[in-house]
C-alpha cells in the first residue's frame, strides 16, 4: 500500500517535466503540442548515442542533449509552427501530430524497434520504512524538483520569465507594453525543449528506450497539465503528482491494463466540473 503510494509518486514526478513543458507551450503559444512524446523519445535516443555509443557519462550527455534539444525546438518552430501561427490552434495541433510521427520515425530509422538502455549500472534498491527505493528514482525526484524550482525562479524573477507570463496572460497587451513576442516564443521553445530532453532521459532511465516510449506518456501528461490548469506551471507539477499517484493506486482496484483510463476520466471530470483546472484561472475566451 505504502509502496504503491511511493510508486505512484515516482510515476508522477517522472511526468512533471513534460507536463511543465506542455503547460508552458500552451500558455504562450495557445495550442496543445502532440509532438512532445516524440520529442522526448528523440532526446532519449540522442542521450543514448552520447552515453552508450560514445561512452560519455550520463550527466554531461544530458546537459548537451538538453541544450541541443532546446535549439532544435526553436528550429522546429521556425520551420513548422511559425508559418502556421495565425491559422488557429487546430491547424497547429494537426501539424504537431504530423511532427510527432516524423520525429518518432526518425528515431526508428536510426535505431530500429528494439529496446535499449543507457550505459548505467542499475542497482538493487534500499529500504526506507520498508519502502523500496532506488537510485534512479532519487535522481528523478531531485532533478524534477530542482527543475521545478528553477522554472519558478525563471518565471517570477527574470525579465524573460515575466515577459513569458505577460504573453501568456494577454498577448496583445504584452505587445502594447513593448514585449517582442518572437523572442519570448523562442525562449519558450528553448525552455520546453530543455524540459522535454531532461524528461526524456529520466523516462529512459526508468524504462527501456524504444520508439513509442514518449508517446505512451502523452495522455497522462496532458491529463496532468489539464488537471493542474493548462498554462499554470505549479498546477502542472501538482497535476502530474496527482495523476501519477491516482493511476498507480487505482491498480489496486482496477485491472492494471486499464490504467490509461484513469487520466482520461480525470480529464473528462475536470472539463465538465472545473474546466479551469486546479490552479488555472477561469477566463472567458475572447
Amino acid at each position: 500500500m505504502l509502496q504503491t503510494l511511493f510508486n505512484g509518486f515516482v510515476t508522477g514526478i517522472t511526468m512533471t517535466l513534460p507536463a511543465l513543458a506542455v503547460t508552458l507551450l500552451f500558455g504562450v503559444l495557445k495550442f496543445a503540442n502532440f509532438a512532445i512524446g516524440a520529442m522526448m523519445t528523440v532526446a532519449a535516443y540522442m542521450a543514448f548515442a552520447l552515453n552508450a555509443q560514445l561512452g560519455w557519462p550520463l550527466l554531461p550527455s544530458t546537459i548537451v542533449v538538453a541544450i541541443v534539444c532546446g535549439l532544435l525546438c526553436i528550429a522546429v518552430d521556425v520551420v513548422t509552427f511559425k508559418p502556421l501561427r495565425d491559422r488557429g490552434s487546430i491547424t497547429l495541433m494537426v501539424a504537431s501530430l504530423g511532427l510527432g510521427f516524423v520525429l518518432e520515425n526518425i528515431a526508428r530509422l536510426f535505431y530500429g524497434n528494439s529496446a535499449r538502455s543507457f550505459a548505467i549500472e542499475i542497482a538493487r534498491p534500499f529500504r526506507v520504512m520498508d519502502i523500496r527505493m532506488n537510485k534512479e528514482q532519487m535522481i528523478t525526484i531531485v532533478v524534477s524538483t530542482v527543475a521545478m524550482l528553477a522554472m519558478y525562479f525563471l518565471l517570477t524573477r527574470t525579465p524573460v520569465g515575466r515577459a513569458m507570463r505577460a504573453v501568456a496572460d494577454n498577448p496583445s497587451l504584452a505587445l502594447v507594453r513593448g514585449i517582442e513576442s518572437g523572442r519570448i516564443i523562442r525562449w519558450t521553445w528553448f525552455i520546453a525543449g530543455v524540459l522535454l530532453a531532461v524528461g526524456g532521459v529520466l523516462i529512459g532511465m526508468d524504462r527501456a528506450i524504444e520508439p513509442p516510449m514518449g508517446s505512451s506518456y502523452l495522455i497522462a501528461v496532458f491529463a496532468a497539465a489539464i488537471f493542474g490548469g493548462l498554462g499554470s506551471p505549479l498546477g502542472a507539477f501538482l497535476g502530474a503528482l496527482a495523476i501519477g499517484i491516482v493511476s498507480e493506486m487505482a491498480t489496486l482496484v482496477i485491472p492494471p491494463n486499464y490504467r490509461i483510463g484513469i487520466p482520461l476520466c480525470v480529464i473528462a471530470l475536470v472539463l465538465i466540473f472545473r474546466p479551469q483546472g486546479l490552479m488555472g484561472q477561469a477566463h472567458i475566451r475572447r
Binding site: Q3, T11, Y217, E248, P256, N257
Partner: peptide, 20 residues
C-alpha cells in the same frame, strides 16, 4: 496471474502486484 498491454509507459504496478 495477470495480462499486460504492449507499449505501456511503465510496468511498475504489474511487477509490484505479482512479485510483491
Amino acid at each position: 496471474s495477470l495480462v499486460y498491454n504492449p507499449e505501456q509507459p511503465s510496468y511498475r504496478a504489474e511487477v509490484q502486484r505479482v512479485f510483491g
